[in-house]
């Protein structure tokens, strides 16, 4: 048997069925590392599902549940997918969680160096849009190397200089866009319409009306996270909400929605029906 990692999970070659004890004729040795193609992320492994973002009067909110799935297995159930960066920025990540961990480490190191340098070279600290532009450039550069950072990331923040909120999206292709409400993945189909409806109800389609309050924003995010839990098989009824205002970042404790599954008993193939 070939136990080299390159052969894991692969069907045995025809030769192996003849003589699996003789490596000379069965699984050939894996090529030395320097001859192998450079290993890039081909697919996400441990993944987080959709994340949501919405602007409200004086701030911005992001929401993400605490689940990291391994395929359809609910593998890790206390993962934080919201991450603060400095005093006025939060990112929320969907997609590959190991890439996200790497990203957090990288960004933390950059912010730490910026912080250290700010003592001697007094320059303004990184604004949310600075961090967003950095991420967009990073993601686009990596996709252009065919080695993507397999995430869709929302950046929410408060720009101290402009005194305004920031909300942006960037993903593994380097695609970027901004909007007053954002949702990734399945949430783009399920939650985004609800978020837009709630946002436009007050602000109007041109966004020039009054924005929703913090309470209203929390309510619509709670509602969206519940609907996503009902509809998204990769979601979990345990989530957090990050709020950024001029006063800084607050990431809530994990919370759950009230759900009602009584109707499931009546579904054919689910309940106790025999017919």
């Amino acid at each position: 048997m070939n136990h080299h990692p390159a052969a894991w999970g692969r069907p045995l070659p025809a030769s192996a069925s003849f003589d699996m004890y003789n490596p000379q004729f069965s699984a050939p040795k894996a090529a030395p590392a320097h001859q192998m193609p450079v290993a890039h992320t081909q697919q996400p492994l441990v993944t987080g599902t959709s994340v949501l973002g919405i602007k409200f009067d004086g701030g911005v909110m992001l929401a993400a549940d605490n689940l990291a799935s391994y395929g359809s297995l609910a593998r890790f159930k206390d993962i934080e997918r919201l991450h603060p960066l400095g005093p006025h920025t939060v990112i929320a990540a969907a997609g590959d969680m190991s890439d996200f961990q790497w990203l957090k480490k990288e960004l933390n190191a950059i912010l730490r160096e910026e912080q250290a340098l700010s003592l001697t070279d007094s320059h303004p600290s990184l604004s949310p849009s600075n961090i967003y532009d950095f991420l967009a450039n990073l993601f686009y550069a990596r996709r252009s190397k065919m080695n993507p950072v397999w995430n869709a990331v929302l950046v929410g923040g408060w720009d101290r200089v402009k005194a305004e909120t920031f909300l942006g999206y960037v993903d593994l292709l380097g695609t970027t866009y901004s909007a007053p409400t954002l949702a990734t993945g399945f949430g783009a189909h399920i939650a985004q319409p609800l978020l837009r409806e709630a946002f436009e109800a007050k602000a109007g389609t041109d966004g020039k009306g009054p924005l929703m309050t913090q309470q209203e924003a929390t309510a619509v995010l709670d509602d969206c996270m519940k609907v996503l839990f009902y509809r998204d098989a990769r979601s979990m009824n345990k989530y957090q909400i990050a709020t950024v205002t001029k006063d800084g970042v607050v990431i809530s404790d994990s919370k759950s929605s009230e759900t009602q599954w009584g109707f499931a008993e009546d579904l054919r193939g689910y309940g106790a029906q025999t017919q």
């Binding site: 730490r112 912080q115 250290a116 340098l117 700010s118 003592l119 001697t120």
Partner: peptide
């Protein structure tokens, strides 16, 4: 031209 620098947090 400050003479005290930050190295880490």
């Amino acid at each position: 031209n400050r003479r005290i620098q930050s190295v880490d947090e």
